[in-house]
Amino acid sequence: MKLTELFAALADIAREKDIEYAVLLDAIRLGILAAYKKTYHANANIDVIVDDSQKKIQIIAKKIVVDSVEDGSMEISLKDAKKISPDAEIGDAVEIEATPPDFGRFAASTCKQIIMQRLKEAEKDKVIKEYSDKEKDMVFGEVSRVAGENVYFNLGKAEGLLPKQEQIPGEPYTPGRKFHCFVLRVDRSTREPLIILSRTHPNLLAKLMELEIPEIMQGVIEIIGIVREPGVRAKVAVHSNQSRVDPVGSCIGSKGVRINVISDELKGERIDVLRWFEDPRLFVASSLSPAKVYSVQIFQNEKRAVVAVSSDQFSLAIGKKGSNVRLASRLTGYKIDMKVMED
């Protein structure tokens, strides 16, 4: 391949693969320099000039002008130096072209290897940037394989990893099934970028609600807080920025149609949507939904709430294996002590 053809090919590759042409030329320069030193066993002060304007690649050796040459690879006599640069003096550095006769073929072969490596690096960089922009966001992917306790997803341009601790307990991850996942981070340490996913993160529920409930996406309804026991139960505190919009009813939808779609996406996780209140007494009472609360006492210094309910509401307020009161406590930030209302 002629050097003119090589430069034209480099320009085409840079354009098609969205790589900066200057970056590609610099990679070529460094790659040829390393390959030249290795092939020709050059230990001198060698540099490579990649001249795009003249479509030339040259090997340049820098030698020090001396009276008596002891090391021909590093030094040049004053007499020979003046043939190159008439103003040369002892101690000057003179640049000498050291391009070998068969350099065109050598350069073309070396460039091919460098280009292949640079394309791989560029593709990796693009994937890292794309999914770095999606960190803390939701993606949709297909289970490609299961290896031990880890589940791997085909995300299109990259592979996603759903570790054991980020899986919903008991959820079947068979190859071919598709799921929404939350992007925790991009692992750059592996040979290929690996996208670390979660099915248990509270923000996965938030993103699913944004997807299914237009009022949240539009900012009419805000999600103030979310807590989950993945695959079992979740509580979501919501607030409306418009008095005429019921935040709880809008999230649940007619006959539960909206929230049921989201629940099905999370292995049937029960989702309690409740109204957020600035007043901690009202918020604690709301957080224990669907139980009806009689009274709430707040002990602010202890971040503790004492809640009284009727005897027929006590088990509902506690929930199965304590899940309702436990989630309410996490959502509100108060330790909740339950008691039966005295007659």
Rank of each mutant, 00 (worst) to 15 (best):
K2H: 10
A8T: 13
A14Y: 11
S53V: 15
Q58C: 12
I59W: 01
K62E: 14
V65S: 02
S77M: 03
K82V: 10
I84E: 12
P86M: 01
I96Y: 02
F103K: 05
F103H: 08
K112Q: 12
A122M: 10
A122L: 12
K126G: 10
K129H: 11
G141I: 07
V143L: 02
V143H: 05
G148P: 06
L161T: 08
Q165R: 14
P172K: 15
F179V: 07
V186R: 02
D187K: 12
R188D: 09
T190D: 05
R191P: 07
L197T: 02
T200D: 13
N203L: 13
L204C: 04
L204Q: 06
A206P: 02
E210V: 02
E212T: 06
P214I: 08
I216N: 00
P230D: 05
A237S: 14
D246L: 03
S254Q: 13
G256R: 09
V261S: 11
D264W: 05
E269W: 04
E278T: 11
A291K: 00
S295F: 01
Q297N: 15
A308H: 10
V309W: 06
A317V: 08
G322D: 00
S323L: 07
N324K: 05
R326P: 01
Y334L: 05
E342V: 00
